[in-house]
Simulated assay, not measured.
Amino acid sequence: MFTAQDILDIAIRLEKNGEKTYRDARLHISGDALKTLLAWIAQEEHNHARWFTELKNRLTQGEDHHLMAELSRALVEDVIQGQAFSLEEVDFETIDSPDKMLRTFIGFEDDTIAFYEVLKTFIDETAIAAQLEQIILEEKKHMATFQEMLAGD
């Protein structure tokens, strides 16, 4: 069984990987609009990681001990297995077009959303659930923006 801290470690890792990926991607593109977008999304990912870290610290200090206590290992493993891509670094040497880069980012955001949707079902504290829902909405906005850019090419 995963602990709440384990799950939050995964969320933190997803967000930090996203931040790093978007910052690294800026070095491999030439368009100012996409560079600006990636910088903004990287900052949002940084903020999400900070929120998950603060939540983990609360759990470590003994608060919210009931949070996600019933989390099933099998369910989480199923979700995590489908997200191996998001937990790995992106190899920009294999991305040979802006469309492929955008599709890569869409996949990353989709994986993250799927993980957070499952995570949300185990949270019974209204304030924490509301903040996680806000993060999900932000991740969906990132994905929609990438999809719009892809459609515009």
Rank of each mutant, 00 (worst) to 15 (best):
E109L: 05
H66T: 11
A69Q: 06
T104K: 04
D96E: 05
T94E: 14
R73T: 07
G107R: 02
I113W: 05
T94N: 14
E117F: 04
T112W: 05
I80R: 03
T104A: 07
E77P: 00
D78T: 15
S86K: 03
R73K: 10
M68F: 05
L87H: 14
E89I: 15
K100H: 10
G107I: 00
R73L: 13
T112P: 12
F105A: 08
F108R: 07
L71G: 00
E70F: 05
F92Q: 06
G107C: 05
F105T: 00
G107T: 01
T94F: 11
V118M: 08
K100R: 12
Q81C: 13
I106V: 15
L67A: 11
S97V: 12
M101H: 04
F85P: 09
D110E: 15
L87N: 14
V118T: 12
E70P: 02
E88P: 07
E109H: 01
F105H: 13
A74I: 12
Q81T: 15
E117T: 05
V90W: 00
A69H: 02
P98C: 13
S86F: 01
D99L: 04
F92E: 03
E93R: 14
Y116D: 09
H65T: 06
Q83I: 10
D99K: 08
R73V: 05
